[in-house]
Write a protein that binds this DNA or RNA. Structure first.
Lengths: 142, 142
DNA sequence: CTCGATATTTCATGTTGTCAAGCAACGCGT
DNA sequence: ACGCGTTGCTTGACAACATGAAATATCGAG
């Protein structure tokens, strides 16, 4: 096992911590620009791609389904999302973005791209190297 | 400006999002192992290094001072932190880790190192490259 | 000493999160 | 067809986190 006191490893961990912190700041900031909280922005972004059952949203957010109820409630109250029945299973409620929700999600996505692009201010080749390293880092380690 | 539709950039951004998500999971998990929330763990880690005025904690956490009051209250109720007067300014209350707090912070730090080390399962050379790329990414871009 | 600024707390309020309990709908086995 | 365990969602009670406004105490400059 690599020693925990390895200066290089420690520095990489610190840098990652910084990336994480900055990413979060920018995400929350971009969401706030559209009067959304971070959680609401995440759900809206998910639903902009496809309608999802409540339970599936909970899985993706790694939280309890009962929590999703509240988040979708608030999005629905603002007309950004609606609940629709699943034709194949009447237990399921599909949360779907409304046209207004799609519009907001689109502008949100632009804000995010805009905010994150400075992070990728590396040459194409460097971005490729970074991609490979990140991929390897995230590989399912035993 | 680089086009937003650049596939490589998009993939790197996605990978970073994944790193961020995983980092958070592991952080919360490690905190929970010591019956702490994420916010409590952050504050305790800060105070393990040095005592800090409430206001300074708020700055580091990027939140309102009134929020810090509650977090420190809960840590204090568990004997991990105590409030001490600042000898030079009686308005200021210095939050400081107790011996029990230092102990918990130490074990927490080990959990975190342990959890994050798999992320750095790259060769020393690769970690060096990663460090350089992350540094450049985080450089103060205009 | 007075007055504006600073540090902290308290209160009201809202969002996120958990857990347990409840209800409706599904589907399997008989 | 019936019963029954399972699944999907909501509700309720509760805790933590977060903000903003107002109250209190102290500081420091004029």
């Amino acid at each position: 096992m690599a020693p925990r006191t390895d200066a290089l490893t420690r520095e990489v961990v610190d840098l990652i911590a910084t990336v994480v912190a900055r990413y979060h700041e920018e995400y929350e900031e971009a969401a706030a620009k559209h009067a959304l909280t971070g959680a609401q922005a995440k759900v809206l972004a998910l639903l902009a791609r496809e309608s999802l059952p409540m339970r599936r949203i909970a899985q993706l957010l790694k939280c309890e389904p009962s929590n999703v109820t509240g988040i979708v409630d608030r999005l629905e109250a603002r007309g950004l999302v609606e609940r629709r029945p699943d034709p194949d299973d009447r237990r399921i409620k599909l949360a779907a973005a409304t046209p207004a929700g799609l519009d907001t999600a689109g502008r949100l996505s632009e804000s995010l791209d805009f905010a994150r692009e400075p992070l990728a201010a590396l040459s194409a080749e460097e971005r490729g190297v970074l991609r490979d390293l990140l991929r390897r880092m995230l590989e399912p380690g035993a």
